[in-house]
Amino acid sequence: MAINAVLFDFSGTLFRLEQDASWLADVRGADGAVLDLEAQTELMRRMTAPVGQVVELDEEHQYAWHHRDRDPDLHRKVYLEVLRRSGVPQRSQAEALYHRLITPGEWTPYPDTEAALKAVAGSGRKVGVLSNIAFDIRPAFTQRGWDAYVSDFTLSFEVGAVKPEPEIFRAAVERLGVAAAETLMVGDSEEADGGARALGCEFALVDPWPTSERPDALLAALRAHGLL
């Protein structure tokens, strides 16, 4: 069946959270020392990893972790704990970093994000953004005028389901008005985004590399499925 719609994941697929030098310059660990580059890189990974628990948690925070993308309050609670357990003991610094995480304007688009969205929409196909997320990412698109290419945003905290649960993929394709078999899901997680296959969608995997190292993976994925 022909592909008539494309669903894109957000984090690690269309956008990536990448700090500038000021973000972590003054963040100090429990020993009072400024975090080195390796520690900074690991901290950012823990803030944006799509799947897999990144630190050990007590029962209370374990529950919050499992439900973080369904509830903004639980998301905030567990990520502040993740930051604390990852070497950011000062609450004020953890709060500042968390604010960066949930501010759409702080996220960096991949070099080919605009071209990919525009190409799919321009071909007459539907474009959807499907994300496990606990905050509204629409401003990342509207501030660039890219919302004009997106027919629908299916966000886990709004629909009460998370990838790879079939309910969230079903909601996304129904909102686009297409069949799963005519939909391509593009994402950076085989486990989460690849769950679309269970519903009958096609799937394309991209690597969540830094934006400077991944210039055209979205366009390559579209091309591989005959959409360019």
Rank of each mutant, 00 (worst) to 15 (best):
S123K: 14
G160E: 03
D147I: 04
A148P: 00
V186F: 06
V173M: 13
A121I: 00
V127Q: 04
L184F: 09
A181T: 14
K163C: 12
W146M: 02
I168C: 11
L155T: 00
A140T: 04
F153G: 06
Y149A: 14
F153M: 06
A171R: 14
G124P: 10
R125E: 04
R144Q: 15
P111Q: 10
V186E: 07
D136S: 04
T108G: 01
L130Q: 06
P166K: 11
I168P: 01
E174M: 10
V162Q: 15
K118Y: 00
G187P: 10
V186K: 03
T113S: 14
E182G: 12
Y149T: 01
V186G: 03
S131C: 11
G187Q: 06
I137W: 02
V120L: 12
E182I: 04
G187Y: 05
R175D: 12
G160V: 06
A119N: 03
V162H: 03
L176Y: 09
E167G: 13
R175C: 01
T108E: 13
A121H: 15
A172T: 07
G177I: 00
F157I: 04
M185N: 08
W146D: 03
F153Y: 14
L176F: 12
I137Y: 02
V162Y: 00
E182N: 15
A148F: 01
E158A: 03
V120C: 08
I133F: 01
R138T: 13
F141A: 10
G187C: 04
R170D: 15
L184Y: 08
V159H: 06
V127D: 01
